[in-house]
Nucleic acid binder design. Structure first.
Lengths: 210, 210, 210, 210
DNA sequence: GATGAATGAGAGTTCATTCAT
DNA sequence: CATGAATGAACTCTCATTCAT
């Protein structure tokens, strides 16, 4: 009986989690079409194929869905960063480039969604905070690479590794922004590639720098 | 009678223009408090001290006000750029820095407003187009400086002046974005200063670059 | 031109007042059918034959309608009391009886409405306050009668005229309550008549009784 | 096995009754905070620490809980009245006063709850019926006292004992109503005391008065 | 051109009730 | 019998826009 109860409980929980995901995905899919604020709860539930009221069993407020999604994204990013094992690489710059490319490929899949999230961040302190912590995490991670690179003389040494990491992350973000602001976009990964290439001199050691 | 009519017509036109400005300013002032979409026409007209219906005598749609304002901004920027006479300067990099500082001081006055405009751009193709043309204009302008700087050997020559200009403008925009995304912001001009300083090596000529 | 404007303004104002009254009356008519809380704004506007949104041009909240109505009632009662000229009467008790009868006839027209107002008062401090001030006003008015009656020896003198007035008003209210709580009601005026008759000894001077 | 079944059955029944009581008490406790209609089933079940669905195993409808509670109150009052043995008293008026005081002390404990019940009665025929039967019961009981009192000459004899009882009960109810309608209430027992004192002459035999 | 009352679609949210587990 | 996820009708309130004055 315990067992059957557990199993049943699990099924229920699974179903619950599934509905939650359905709601989030419905919202994401709609955000490809228009900004979050213009999406009604009803549209979301319709696309998720649940009743309108069900929405509020999962998210006390429409806004909470966005934050829940962002939370998932944050966790995903953390996991991704943890799985990286860049020690094996010969050039840290190369590592940076490759990591950024992977992220760019991920982010680059949906222009509309990224725009929606961006706009949402403009108006929402919580969301901004979450993004900030994601960025901090990424910066921390990059920091290690830059420290190694500074040690080997690959990177410039007249600024702190922290600053290098910081500006590297910014570089990625400018690409993201550039991308969502253009009407006829180059694919994000390319944009990143070009931008990195251009700004490389600001990171690498120049033999003759005094 | 012709004359008096003209005079009357002028007064009328002046008043009309004045009301228009009052509406725009009311909207801007409200955008310091909350995003554009959360501002109602009634709030705007109330602050502008006109009747609700009057709004639609000036802007066919709430959204048109935003575009009208952006149009004004564009024109303002154009005027500003035309008034610059940077030929007299000895270092083009210095010119760039000073121009950016002036712009940053201008933009830096209202965080909330800038956020609002940013978010609006995310959702509005027209607005984005306007911003794009502003940026293009700015890039054009910067181009001249970089051409001179390349000629004197001040700037790197392994990339086109166009690219230099392009990335310089991007650099400004990343600062803008960074600024609106932080919750506890450094003043925009400082941010610009620091960022420029960091990325300087990506623009300047390095004696020993092969 | 001034004149025509004024006339137009007046027409507008008249229409506005008319709509307001229509809304109030629609609400009252619905309150004969069910308690206020169970009436939706839509029902009210439908019966008043205006659009749903119009309601909120007149009352910021559904509740405000009730208070507006109560305000009107209060003013009506004040006016009524002012118009009374009971000085001419020979017996103050008779005056009291007649006044109560008039009021009872007025209140007695709608059982359901009175119930609704009563219930609303239970939950609403503002409403209660208004009722309280109405009652105070009525008490003040009754006070004068009782003072005269005490002077002529018609009323008992071992309690203050204030108390006499106070309890007289209470007596009316108990009838009102009794009336709304019965399922098969005697008409309110009769109820008042009987009740007054029964409690007369508590007001009149003893000596007079045989 | 029969036995164990019975025992188990008893336990089950005890638990069932207990849950029922918990639900009722939870509702009552909430009614101290806001009117019944504004209380959701979920709030009740939460406070009773059972699942939402459980509620409907005990009461087919939210409203039924109120009636169930009222039923309990009715029975309680019946029991209370039965336990009274007022024969021993010398003055029936004194008996009346003391009984009313006891009831007033009971009712006087929760203003908000009393208001809630009152309002509920306004809208609910069943509830009103129950109250009516409670009142009838009380009146019946009072009747005996008044008969005795009339026999001894304590009470006036120009009206029926039935009427005396009737108006005595009304007197209590007016106090109750007065109490819930005031914003700054005198304690109910005091109110009752004062009111009884004032209206005494309407009950007692005249000759007896000094 | 200015006014502001009227409009009505639509928003987010609540909640009594049902029912599969 | 307990559970709590699902339901969907109903709610109050907002607001861009229209239009008669």
């Amino acid at each position: 009986m315990n067992v059957s109860k557990d199993v049943a409980g699990n099924r229920r929980e699974r179903r619950k989690e599934e509905t939650r995901q359905r709601l989030i995905e419905a919202a994401l899919s709609l955000m490809q079409e228009k900004p979050f604020e213009q999406i009604s709860v009803e549209e979301i539930t319709e696309r998720a194929d649940v009743a309108k009221g069900t929405f509020f069993n999962y998210f006390p407020t429409k806004e909470h869905l966005l934050m829940a999604y962002m939370q998932e994204m944050v966790e995903e990013v953390y996991e991704f960063l943890e799985q990286l094992h860049p020690e094996s690489a010969e050039s840290q710059w190369e590592v940076l480039r490759q990591v950024m490319r992977v992220i760019a490929e991920h982010d680059g899949r949906s222009l509309a969604l990224t725009r929606s999230m961006f706009a949402a961040c403009c108006h929402n302190d919580h969301l901004r905070q979450m993004v900030a912590s994601m960025i901090e995490e990424a910066t921390q991670h990059a920091l290690m690479g830059f420290q190694k690179g500074q040690a080997t003389g690959e990177f410039r040494q007249d600024v702190s590794a922290r600053d290098l990491a910081h500006y590297a992350v910014r570089l990625y973000r400018i690409c993201l922004m550039e991308w969502i602001m253009e009407n006829d976009s180059t694919p994000l990964p390319e944009l990143v590639e070009q931008t990195l290439e251009f700004f490389k001199p600001a990171f690498l050691n120049q033999e003759v720098r005094k």
